[in-house]
Nucleic acid binder design. Structure first.
Lengths: 197, 197
DNA sequence: TGTAAACTACCGAACGGTAGGTAGTTTGTC
DNA sequence: GACAAACTACCTACCGTTCGGTAGTTTACA
């Protein structure tokens, strides 16, 4: 139904992930979608509202996928963690793209206030979820951590974000995959490994 | 001597670290320094050249501090690592500022080509140096690592960069200090700690 | 069922503002 | 007098946004 609005969101998100929100212009989106600039404003009255719509759609999609896997009794904490890594592993094959929240976090000062609020909530949700996976894994005896769930969830989240950003300038494509492997070492499912206090 | 040029570089760097290169304008710098816009262009003909000058000055300063500490026989690898963390600990008390290379890495696609080259070299130098501290620490028996020097240096560098970026939106000021503590746990100077293979 | 009102999707043209950058001129100091 | 440093004035390009208007579809009601 809202085919045009969806395409605008698709193209907009792609442009944010490759070039950032500030660099994304209505003109760029219009050219890609095949309509004129004011037609975008018909669907999304301001650039800020378009930005908010893109974030909300992404977050909602992610949240529902999240729900699905955490409610599945056949999935372990390790599976959940691997699921958390999967979008980043996918990004590892698209050298010039970063994840949406990382791209937006990188230009927080230049963002309209409404978007800053949205980005903050988005990042906090990500961190909470990862922390919960780790905490539950420890409680169930499925995971052995090198550090506290809270501290380790920050390390993993921050290094994933940092890696995506840094990778774009170093053009070292293997770095992201290496990093995820390193993260797996910090979270052991093999309980024979000695835990560091 | 070049008092004005230096002030332009100072203000420019400050603006990049707080708002990014794209958001920084000649007008902003001029207002802060107390001169007119074309006077900046007199010292730095293009915005790209100003950007390159800022990066080069930062890198050269950092490199010489780096030389000093690594040549001092009284300093251990652990001291060198703490020195590496020190600028980040300083940034921990300035909530809206990120480090220069992180700010620039975040907007690589929007940067002029000459600056992209400079940023790439800057980041690679940082990573190489950190890796060298760790490698030397292991060889001297001063450090016990949770992972290989190369892999761990990436984890530390990426998570520091990511943390600065993320922190600006979450406004969680303690997160950076927590992270550095977590990093210290991944690199142990206490050899009684069991090393994970 | 006919028809007028309302709505949706889109368009061309233009506005106010800001960006980086240029040309030419004045000022201050060896 | 030479020259660097600073100035005023101006340019082009592009940004998000607004305006006025055009089709085509849907809705409301006599």
């Amino acid at each position: 139904m809202n085919a045009t609005a969806d395409r605008i969101l698709d193209v907009g998100q792609e442009l944010i992930q490759t070039g950032g929100f500030s660099a994304m212009s209505f003109q760029d989106i219009a050219s890609e979608v095949g309509i004129r600039k004011p037609s975008i404003i018909h669907h999304f009255p301001t650039k800020a509202e378009l930005g908010v719509a893109i974030i909300r759609r992404y977050r909602d999609t992610f949240a529902s996928q999240l729900q699905q896997i955490s409610k599945d009794p056949a999935k372990s904490s390790w599976d959940a963690l691997e699921f958390y890594f999967s979008p980043f592993l996918f990004l590892a094959s698209t050298p010039d793209k970063v994840c949406l929240c990382g791209a937006l976090a990188g230009e927080i000062p230049a963002l309209p206030e409404v978007m800053r609020v949205e980005v903050k909530q988005f990042i906090e949700a990500h961190q909470r979820w990862l922390e919960e996976i780790l905490r539950e894994g420890v409680e169930l005896g499925e995971l052995v951590l090198i550090d506290s769930p809270k501290s380790l969830s920050r390390v993993i989240f921050n290094s994933l974000q940092g890696s995506l950003l840094v990778r774009r300038s170093t053009e070292d494509v293997s770095q992201l995959k290496d990093l995820i492997n390193a993260m797996r070492k910090l979270v052991k499912s093999d309980s024979s490994i000695q835990q560091i206090r």
